[in-house]
Amino acid sequence: MTETPSSHLETPRFLDAGEAALVVEFGATVDPAVNDRVLALDAALRARTPEGVTETVPTYRSLMIHYDPLTLDRGALVEAVKGLSRAEAAERAPGRAWIVPCCYEPAFGEDLAEVADKVGLTPDKVVALHSGAEYRVYMYGFAPGFAYLGGLPQALGLPRRPTPRPPHSEGALMIGGGLAAVASFPMPTGWYVLARTPERLFSARRDPTFLFEAGDTLHFEAVDAAAFAELDARAGAGEVVARLVEPQA
């Protein structure tokens, strides 16, 4: 599932996922231009939510709109979305940019050596490529606070493992299938673990509970194990340790 810029649909397709969810599909590929339109519609619907819309879920290429069909008629929802799509140009605010600390040392980047071997680069070069790229949060999925990221350098494009590896740590930075991810919950995975961030993508006791929104951009900043420990303690106490990059005036 690599990123493939492609022609996207001029007008979105409306697909029913039962009588209580409508899929508004803008394309069939992982493409920032398609995702921009998904996020623009999502922002417009959140700003002016028609009565009966219960929840919206942005993904790479479509927006799933959950609704109560006893409150909101399907036809009226489609018309509302068409109206917003035209005004979608009302362009969503640009995503925020974050600098996210992470540690690539062997105890944290458990699969770094394996990845370097597979892509034919030195571990240092893999780290330089991974930490030098700009990533887009396309969507969450799979588990609470599991963020799918686009922007992985092509040189690190590697299929996922045929069988999952043992559970990774909280905060694992992973790559697989041409994409990158940050995972909040330890789980077995078919992805390769390159590093670990002390930041909490998810914390029920913190406001905001989830740190990044779909559409945000991330840069990873390498720190050593000592800095990781210090940042981890602060993050554990509820502090946000990723830094927001202020937009240029």
């Binding site: 969810a21 899929v23 992982v30 993904t59 799933m64 799918y148």
Partner: peptide, 12 residues
């Protein structure tokens, strides 16, 4: 059988 991920409703 692979599509680019999208949303899943109850009963999908």
């Amino acid at each position: 059988h692979d599509i680019v991920s999208d949303g899943i409703a109850m009963g999908a």
